[in-house]
């Protein structure tokens, strides 16, 4: 073992130099030509930062599209899922409460119309998206709140929906709400 100690320590030292210093420095250098210099792209409205492009934020106001429930309360410095098991009674009660709350705020909607993703918490607690169905089920509430035509909002959803070649269709909630505010201007 003795004759192995010196090479072990020296190889580790070279590894520190190459993998902990040179490699991250190289990626940090390349980051300078990446979007937002690798600091995370922000979204601005009227020159004011209102969020990060990739991260979801909390929307609970009736005039906005709601984002999904979050176990982290949309704390972007403490991501977390609920880690509730699928048959946990306490969890199922929580889902039922969310359904009830949704129905109170959206009285014209029938329970069967609510897609499950709107009443279940995301993995990160920072999910930036909702499904197109999850957006459409909120249209009547928003139309009434903003005194807008439902058809206008529906066409906005269609315009904002992404239909990727692979993976599910989705709508970014922050972008959707920014466009929604613009409708009134």
């Amino acid at each position: 073992m003795k004759e192995n100690f010196l090479p072990a320590i020296r190889i580790t030292a070279v590894s520190i130099l190459m993998l902990m210093v040179v490699y991250p420095a190289l990626i940090l250098g390349i980051a300078q030509i990446a979007p937002a210099n690798g600091k995370g792209e922000t979204v601005t409205v009227d020159n004011k930062v209102v969020g990060y492009k990739l991260e979801g934020q909390f929307f609970s106001d009736d005039k906005y599209f709601w984002s999904r429930p979050s176990a982290a309360g949309y704390n972007a410095a403490g991501s977390s899922g609920s880690n509730k098991g699928p048959t946990n009674p306490e969890y199922l009660k929580q889902v039922q409460d969310r359904i009830d709350t949704f129905l109170v705020h959206n009285p014209s909607i029938k329970k069967e119309e609510i897609p499950a993703e709107l009443v279940t918490a995301s993995g990160s607690g920072l999910d930036p998206d909702i499904s197109p169905a999850g957006a459409k089920v909120q249209v009547k509430r928003i139309a009434a709140e903003r005194k807008l035509d439902a058809a206008t909002i529906l066409s906005l959803i269609d315009k904002q929906t992404e239909y990727p070649f692979f993976g599910p269709d989705k709508v970014n909630v922050l972008k959707l709400n920014i466009e929604l505010d613009k409708l009134e201007k």
Partner: peptide, 8 residues
């Protein structure tokens, strides 16, 4: 099943 999953 979307509990703990991301839409994207």
């Amino acid at each position: 099943s979307m509990e703990g999953k991301e839409i994207r």
